[in-house]
Design a protein around this nucleic acid. Structure first.
Lengths: 342, 342
DNA sequence: ACGGGACACGCAATCGTTTGTAGCAGGTGG
DNA sequence: CCACCTGCTACAAACGATTGCGTGTCCCGT
């Protein structure tokens, strides 16, 4: 229980005033202090094992060196890499991450965000944005620095780090078209989320530009990004359009729901019906059949979020990073996609 | 950017001294203040939207209302529920969770823990313990309150919340024995982790008490809790003991490695060779075949960790909770286990 | 009428830092 | 020789809350 060593102790030990010690320790103000006192202070600080008290420092400088991170569902494997990436960058700069989970409830979100604001975090990373999101609007005029990750809110001037769904879905459709598929369906994600809508539109756009027939009957919305809703949506879709030979799913779990629906109608995934997932979460390569999926660089997403937030918190207006970044995905081709049976 | 409302403002507005306002706001000391001033203070505090400044409060009371949580690998689906459980309980009590990821490196762990100590967290939840862990020993005599989760360190008086591996592995072995298996092997986890050793010993113990033949040739150690090391270990095991009809794996990813090894030798999982996993992570039910696994209540583990830590941080010596809790697992029986082919 | 509790409240120190300003040297220029 | 600047250091006031202690008032009992 090493008693707390304060700046006062260091100053007394070095035989100088506490304020001088403070300046000697701070690289910014070090030049004001004479060469040899600086050395003496540094030496004794080191000897006593002095560590500045973050609360005192924060109180005075009005910053906590902490950033809040709001995650809709921490059990979703998507967010692990994002957290890891952000933590790596922010940790190096001396920031700590306050992570909170909202269990996918909008009500919780506003509570949780409030708690973070009361804690005076220096910035926030939000992974919970919906396309129209009151929480974010409130937050915006509270003046807190923030960046959105994975999902975006429409019409608000907030930096966001997103996957390039236009390209990603495009790659999936291209892949299927190249295999020879023409009747391709889509099981969309929730349309109130930017990812759900974006991937849906990307699907329509790419189908259109490939001159592939597409109408509303080939699209079904899953109420949530989970296996079971995905399964139900796929069932509805296949009942209506048994002629489809391929399905682009809005995420991996929905795609797994599609697996189930396809298998239930005595068809074989990757042979009778090709399926593509989205996100490329772990273990997909061990599915039966291994799933073709669009890989989004989530760890990098966390890194970019941190790198975007950092200058904002520091007040570096000089370095003006782009207000929005879209990360390019890649396609992991496995065995859930193959040429259509003739 | 609502200007910060301080206690001073509330006091001035209510026409009383700041210290009285402080006491009126604090339920503990409220009785000292007269009824109607309490009401007046509460009202104006409410009207002005006063929120105590956590840093000032923390500086004075010498606590940060935050607890550090150290995770070896945040991308492992195991830890999501633990985090969620802990956060739920601690959040309700006004604590925030500082989560840090060590990327499975021991070196990082000590750095990360140090950073948390310097931040003056009120307590720590560690999921990184190895059987003999210097970081924890150092931490112990720094006097910080902590609790170990999932993994334990030997011979240190630190509360720990663990799964009951003796029972869990026992259930797996019993299940296999009941199906008629007699030649059962084990792919163990790293023996320097309490879970690796514990499950290994539990395996031997149960085999012994069932009077099943068991010798060292039926056990192989996987260097890490991942698919690929598990695959390699399983290969070694099956090369040496092709007669085994069942394998108890030390965790799910290792078990998936076993799947691969079994399939490579042209045998069928669940028919020629039965396999049990451990942890019951998501998506196992979608594997081919769906995996039988021991389910550990991880969310509850996080909850119990928080509940154990809370009284420690508060200094409640009255309520002495057990220093160690072992949570009882259940067996999720699926199709990777079946009767041996005769 | 006076001593003595309660009962409310105010005063000021304190937590550990940062930072504006004042003061005190020694050196330089006029 | 005085004024002035420069280079260093000390003083003290913040940041926003908590808390031991003192003080005043009122009421009650003797």
């Amino acid at each position: 229980m090493g008693k707390q060593v304060t700046l006062r102790d260091v100053a007394r030990e070095a035989g100088i005033h506490i304020s001088t010690a403070s300046r000697a320790l701070n690289p910014e103000t070090r030049s004001i202090v004479s060469q040899d006192t600086v050395e003496r202070v540094l030496a004794t600080a080191n000897r006593l094992g002095y560590r500045p008290h973050p609360l005192a420092q924060g109180l005075r400088k009005n910053r906590t060196m902490s950033v809040g991170m709001v995650i809709p569902d921490i059990e979703n494997p998507l967010f692990g890499p994002i957290i890891a990436g952000a933590e790596q960058v922010l940790g190096n700069e001396g920031y700590s991450l306050l992570i909170t989970n909202t269990d996918m409830s909008e009500g919780q979100t506003s509570e949780v965000v409030n708690a973070l604001v009361e804690r005076r975090v220096d910035g926030m990373i939000l992974a919970t944005a919906s396309r129209s999101d009151d929480v974010i609007i409130d937050l915006l005029d509270s003046g807190i620095h923030m960046v959105l990750v994975n999902r975006a809110t429409e019409g608000v001037p907030v930096p966001s780090i997103l996957g390039d769904d236009l390209t990603g879905v495009g790659m999936a459709v291209d892949h299927l078209a190249a295999l020879g598929h023409t009747r391709i369906g889509h099981v969309a994600g929730p349309q109130h989320l930017s990812t759900g809508l974006g991937r849906h539109q990307a699907f329509l756009t790419r189908m259109h530009s490939l001159n592939l027939e597409i109408d509303a009957s080939a699209v079904e919305e899953s109420t949530w990004y989970q296996v079971d809703p995905g399964y139900k949506a796929a069932r509805r879709l296949l009942d209506r359009r048994p002629d489809l030979t391929a399905i682009v799913a809005a995420n991996d779990l929905i795609a797994l729901g599609c697996y189930k629906a396809v298998m239930e109608s005595d068809k074989e995934v990757g042979v009778d019906v090709s399926i593509t997932g989205y996100n490329d979460i772990p273990l997909l390569d061990l599915m039966q059949p291994p799933m073709t999926s669009v890989r989004v660089p989530y760890r990098q997403m966390g890194v970019e979020a941190a790198n975007t937030l950092l200058p904002l918190m520091r007040g570096d207006t000089t370095e003006d990073r782009p207000i929005s970044i879209r990360l390019t995905p890649t396609l992991s081709i496995r065995e859930s996609t193959g040429p259509p049976v003739s």
